[in-house]
Write a protein that binds this DNA or RNA. Sequence first.
DNA 1: GTGAAAGCGCTAACAA
DNA 2: TTGTTAGCGCTTTCAC
Lengths: 335, 335
Amino acid sequence: MATIKDVAKRAGVSVATVSRVINNSSRVTPETREAVTKAQDELNYHPSISAKIALRQDSDIIGMMIADHSDPYFGQMVKVVDQLATKEGMSLIVNAGYRDADRERQCIDELIQKRCRIIIAHSMNLRDDILIRYMANQKSMILINRNLRGFPDRCVYLDDEGGAYLAVKHLIQNGHTKIAYIRSSHQVDDAEQRFRGYVRALEEAGITFNPALVVSEEPTPQGGEQGAETLLGLSQHFTAIACYNDMQAAGAMAILSDNDIRIPENVSIIGFDNTAISRYLHPRLTTIMNPVSAMAISAFSIGLAIVKGEDASVHSRVFTPTLIKRFSVRDLRSF
Amino acid sequence: MATIKDVAKRAGVSVATVSRVINNSSRVTPETREAVTKAQDELNYHPSISAKIALRQDSDIIGMMIADHSDPYFGQMVKVVDQLATKEGMSLIVNAGYRDADRERQCIDELIQKRCRIIIAHSMNLRDDILIRYMANQKSMILINRNLRGFPDRCVYLDDEGGAYLAVKHLIQNGHTKIAYIRSSHQVDDAEQRFRGYVRALEEAGITFNPALVVSEEPTPQGGEQGAETLLGLSQHFTAIACYNDMQAAGAMAILSDNDIRIPENVSIIGFDNTAISRYLHPRLTTIMNPVSAMAISAFSIGLAIVKGEDASVHSRVFTPTLIKRFSVRDLRSF
DNA sequence: GTGAAAGCGCTAACAA
DNA sequence: TTGTTAGCGCTTTCAC
């Protein structure tokens, strides 16, 4: 691999001049510039970013930690940050922790080792004390989907409890009282919050909570299939299923449909997240809007403001979910 | 940010010893190791990867270029490579070019500048001559979804033409002759190949190709919606629609359904790629299996073999699509 | 406008 | 087992 020295030699100039041409850092005569560019091209020279970072001690890299590369929810989040980063002339590195605490630590350590200027982390399994330590040391680290005590201005999150409450309240307002819930089997904050929203909506409506109508499954279509099968086997009567997320809803709908149970005529379904898939299920899924893009923009903006020494408090930190009405919930009161 | 010197000073040893502890590179007495680890921890020291790369000239980073972070197709590809990389103790960087030639070049340049040991690129818009130049200079660069002349052993791709042929032949075998096609509006190889497969299947069956039944749309659900609307407005009779991919199929199905056209009773649909979504559409989508994971594994294995100086020719390079029969195609012959 | 040289954080060869 | 030191590719200051 050609180095700056090779280019300098070939162009008959010093390395300093080559550096200046590469970085447009100060005036260089057109002839010199031409000669350098030519040499660069002939040698297929690509400056080493590492050498630059080693020397300069800062990097223009923004690092993200997400749970899973193959999950479109995170895909959207990454895309938004990627486009903002590009606009700022920064580059992006994304690590996925796959919901494993050790792997998550590794991912964040790697981002630090690569000297990312901003770190945006969506941690699923890291304990508070570990995150607190990272946050304390990385002044431009932002957390998505977590409200960590001590760092109110660097935590961007959704009101998950309120979202689930909204979903279940919508079912109740449509006359449902026997409402099953497929929760996430992961031990994460949002799973707990969403479940709590379900319980609160029931309680507020004076409906007694029936633990037999709650199943715990992976937050995937397969989990939804499994959950629906379990619920059907229970021979407990229910008229609606609220799900942890849209993926589970998709799986549950497939199983219901396989069993000739019509949606929403026989059973109503409500999802969460408003993932792309929800618009293409049949019937189109009523769900809760999770403003991922807006949260990603906010997280990025806060990080950027910190790095630039600007005021970060102008950006939103807690986001409110809203109901997206489609066709998977039946109004029982009109019958 | 603490440096290796700070740690050395605090632990009362030399930087070389700290380096040895970090890299487990040679024997160190337990007491020394302990002292170093303690100092590291107290100072929150994270070694700079950049300094290491600058010095060692190689990196254990594997770089990928994909089209779009938010597309689950690429998400799956990235996940597979990520897990293989982790197993090899390597880290992963992914850049997305969003189907723009300039951005794609930037992405690849960035991967080179970061001194990735292996580069896996899925280029949509780069011209052959540009790719040839990159491939010639980057000996461990692998191309996915492209058969670049001159580099047969570093190109991993799907027989797209054969896949579309398979799809349309399946429709024909089920008695369809008026077959519409929604193609991708992108000027990329696979779009052209798949379209060719459609035409060949028709020709082989003696069905005259009707250009009025072909519409060109974005490879997204929105594109599929648009395409279906156009086709319906044409008042040209058709009994089946073959799509460039599953996303388009999902969108088309939603539009058909909105217009009370039943699938497959009134119109059959076939997709391409066997994306996760295809199993959760209603009815479940008959489609063509695109073995992304297998291709990603192959690309990675070839790259690794090159880097290790092993024989790369044992890994598959061209992949054959297969038909996944589900419930979106009706057999017209039984009526 | 250009060059010489110092130095970033780190590893590895060599010495002790 | 540990320390000293050269040097990786690059940027930047200071001369000229």
